Every structure is written in structure tokens, then in C-alpha cells.
Simulated assay, not measured.
Amino acid sequence: MSRASTAIFHCPFCAEEDLRPVAEPAGAWACQACARVFTVDLVTVDTAQIPGRLAEEAALERRTP
């Protein structure tokens, strides 16, 4: 997932929704309420903590002899 295609809906600092993309740094957003400029990066998804995934793995374990 690239930053350019990621939409941010709330400021992580003040939770305001009035955000605007800015040119520099690439993929950054400017909050109009608290005047912060920030980027958000997805590092990883912890699949071990997804409830659907846990149920799926349990079902597969029951099928394995």
C-alpha cells in the first residue's frame, strides 16, 4: 500500500477531520485544526490477532488427522 493512495480520515493528534494533502514530504497530510503535518505508514498486520483468522486456523486443525 503506497502512501499516495492511502486516505487519512482523522488527525492522529487531535482527531479533527479537516485534513489536506501536502506536497512535501511525499504522502503527508496537514491538519487544519492543530497545524501539524504528518505521515502515516502501515508497518505490518498482525494476522495472529484477527478473530476470523483464528477461527479459520482452528477449523483447519480439526480437519487435519
Rank of each mutant, 00 (worst) to 15 (best):
M1H: 08
S2Q: 09
R3K: 15
S5Y: 08
S5C: 09
S5L: 09
S5K: 15
T6G: 04
A7H: 12
I8M: 02
I8S: 01
I8E: 03
I8H: 00
F9W: 11
F9R: 13
F9D: 09
H10K: 15
C11S: 07
P12F: 15
P12K: 14
P12N: 13
F13I: 02
C14W: 06
C14D: 08
A15P: 02
A15R: 11
A15G: 03
D18A: 10
D18W: 09
R20N: 08
P21C: 08
P21L: 10
V22K: 01
V22L: 07
V22Q: 03
A23I: 10
P25G: 05
A26C: 05
A26H: 12
A26L: 13
A26S: 12
G27C: 03
G27H: 02
G27N: 03
A28Q: 05
A28I: 01
A28C: 10
A28T: 04
A28Y: 00
A30S: 12
Q32D: 08
Q32E: 11
A33T: 09
A33V: 03
C34R: 15
C34H: 12
A35L: 12
A35W: 13
R36H: 11
R36Y: 02
R36N: 15
V37M: 09
F38W: 07
T39M: 09
T39N: 14
V40R: 15
V40G: 02
V40L: 11
D41G: 08
V43S: 04
T44R: 14
T44V: 07
V45L: 07
V45A: 02
V45K: 07
T47L: 06
T47H: 03
T47N: 05
A48G: 11
Q49G: 13
Q49E: 11
P51R: 06
P51E: 03
P51L: 00
G52C: 01
G52V: 01
G52Y: 01
R53S: 00
R53A: 04
R53P: 05
R53M: 03
L54K: 12
E56C: 01
A58N: 03
A58C: 00
A59M: 07
L60R: 15
E61S: 15
R62C: 04
R62N: 05
R62W: 03
T64K: 13
P65V: 08
